[in-house]
Amino acid sequence: MAMDKTRPGKEIGVMVYKSHTSGIGGRLKHKAEDFLVEEITPDGLILKAGISLGLDLGQPAEQIHLTLEKSNISTLRAVKELSNALRVSQKRIGYAGTKDKRAVSTQRISVWGVGADDVMRVNLGGIRIRDPQYCDDRINLGDLQANRFTVRIRDVGLSSGEIESRVKAIDGELVSGYPNFFGVQRFGSKRPITHLVGREIVKGNLREAVLIYLTSCFPGEGESLADVRKRLRDTGDMRRAVREYPRHLEYEHSLINHLIREEGDWGGALMQLPYGLRKMFVHAYQSYIFNLALSYYIREGFIVERLPLVGYKSGVDEVTSMILEDEGVGPGDFRVSSLPGLGSAGVLRDAFVYYRDFVLLGVGVDDYYPSKSMVELRFILPKGCYATVLLEEFMKS
């Protein structure tokens, strides 16, 4: 029998741990430098932070490949800032996958139609560019082998011996793979609502989808913003909201401004959002259903190899079918006829995955919590897998 979660992973459908050993506790991502993500290219090259690859620039070509190293900024934001600096469309920039925001991360990106001199002149806060090399091909989603993670867990209240014992025991319990849950990043780290918006889009309730995005409140945003969001939910006054919502909430302003111009055009409002974000809503809802199904199988002790990310062409297993019935949706609803381009045919996803090269690098005194310990771990995960999900098995906090 799996260990039930008692923490807020349940809101994204992650209900259980696979391992039984008590975790070490602690805190993740006290600062960005505590969470290092280094991309491993398709040919197995680790893009080590702060280290140049020493590549030959080559002859000018349509695409230029670069190493993007960023700190405490999302991949999408970094791409937007880079496109602005280069005065090119974001569509010209390719990358293999998104990396954690609150982290230091490295990844290869491609830019179409610019020269090496232009990109190497870019100077942006939290972003460093190096290793330019001309190439013929664009870097697309999935064009990586894996990611290497080096993570510091702080505020651990156990002795070194107990930490080492628990880490070793949990590592042994996960030798047959750890659950391939989607982590909170898939749903929004500060506001885990993307699946809730996606649910309403799939059901065709576009008004509710917009209002969830605009008005859902979470503690990390502060009381004043929570009051603004709640007031819009209660009154529906878009003109007041456009004055009260902070200017940095660009996507919220895009929705509100459209609804001021075109009252009641909820679908048109959603179309103001970037295509990638609109698509993420549906993907997040698929991910939520996957998490619920995998949680059920683990809790009941059943072995399953793969589960569907439900789409309109999906076959569904008995458990997923039961969840869809509870949700009030069916595979056909994932055509998303109410919004063009958001339909998903579905795909199968591995239920469990293997991590490799796992090392407990050390246990030391935590310089931020002097009476506690800091634990440093390193491991490699396949592409598309979430380090935070694995770390939760070791921490359980």
Rank of each mutant, 00 (worst) to 15 (best):
R138P: 04
I323G: 05
I64N: 04
A61M: 08
V228T: 14
K48R: 15
Q59D: 14
Q185S: 10
D326P: 00
N140R: 13
W112R: 06
L66Y: 14
P42S: 08
G236N: 06
L28N: 05
G198S: 04
Q63G: 02
P370S: 09
Y312W: 14
A169R: 12
F218Q: 07
D136Q: 11
D366M: 04
S52T: 12
F218G: 09
L82E: 07
S337K: 06
F302T: 02
M374N: 02
K203C: 04
V228N: 01
V37D: 01
K99P: 05
I256M: 10
V389I: 15
Y368Q: 14
M120D: 09
N291M: 13
D367L: 08
N72L: 11
K48I: 10
G177F: 11
N72D: 15
L360G: 08
H65G: 01
Y369H: 13
A351Q: 04
Q145K: 13
M374C: 12
H258T: 09
D171H: 15
G198P: 03
E69H: 10
D118P: 00
D171F: 13
R306W: 05
E11N: 11
G188Q: 01
R191W: 00
M322G: 11
G115D: 13
H195D: 07
R154T: 09
L47C: 08
E208I: 04
F35A: 12
T388I: 12
V151W: 00
K101D: 04
L66N: 05
G13T: 05
M322P: 00
L377F: 07
G236S: 09
F281W: 05
Q133Y: 03
C217N: 09
F182Q: 09
D117F: 08
G328A: 06
Y288D: 12
G311H: 06
L273M: 11
K203L: 12
S165L: 11
L206V: 01
S295G: 15
S371T: 13
L381W: 01
D56C: 04
Y296R: 11
Y355A: 13
L270P: 09
E62K: 11
A78H: 06
R130D: 06
A49P: 00
G142K: 00
G222F: 06
R148W: 03
G264E: 09
I212M: 03
G264I: 08
D317T: 10
I46F: 04
F187S: 05
T41I: 10
F181K: 02
R166C: 09
G301R: 05
V336R: 00
R154F: 00
L270M: 12
H65Y: 10
L259Q: 04
R356D: 13
L391P: 06
N257R: 15
I303M: 10
I40P: 01
Y17E: 10
K70M: 10
L141K: 01
L309I: 10
K279G: 01
E393F: 06
I73K: 00
A61Q: 12
V210L: 02
G94H: 07
F334P: 02
A78P: 05
S165R: 14
E300D: 13
R240F: 00
G161C: 00
R239Q: 14
D333H: 09
R92K: 14
P340G: 06
D117I: 03
I46K: 09
K230D: 13
R108V: 15
V347K: 11
K10L: 15
V156A: 06
L270G: 08
L76M: 12
M3Q: 11
I201F: 03
R233W: 09
G364F: 00
R191M: 07
E263T: 14
M322V: 08
M280T: 10
A169N: 10
L360M: 11
